[in-house]
Amino acid sequence: MDAQFFAFTLLSIIAVSGGIILSLTKNVVHGALSLLTTLLAAAGIFIVLSAGFIALVQILIYGGAVTILLLFALMLSNANEQKEAIDNRQKPIAIAASIAIFLTSTAVILQTQWNTRSEQGEPITIIDLGRNLFTDWIIPFEIISIILLIAMIGAVVIAWPEGDQ
């Protein structure tokens, strides 16, 4: 077992156990913290897959921004007070659907002949990524910045206090 596979196994155990805790817990704050665990373990797996910049963005946005936002929303909406009614009636269907998705995709993954490469190529650096982003991908990049701006304005407008123009 080489170091890459060992790191991947460790991080994927952490990620899956975080996801299981998120799916089963009765306490929504524990759910948010286990989601943070899963996202940070996923960032580690991104590093294993030699995508260092994406891992940094993942830690910055998910670990820094999204989890804090989720915790604030949980605090402001008293989400921890309805502990007994946390799951709805379609729970058996949900269990069946998720097991079906997992088994079907695992079967497909294991049966397909993947055309993977045998030796490692050149690692992708941040310089390559930035140059590519600002030449070939400049239009999607600009569109995504407009989407972010619109989402920000929309969030401010929706969350604005009523009657206070």
Partner: peptide, 23 residues
């Protein structure tokens, strides 16, 4: 890919089974 499929299945379970919008 199998790790990704298991995370996907857990997420689908959460979307279908939970009542709280934030969860």
């Amino acid at each position: 890919l199998i790790l990704s499929a298991s995370l996907m299945a857990l997420g689908v379970y959460g979307v279908l089974a939970r009542r709280n919008a934030i969860l």
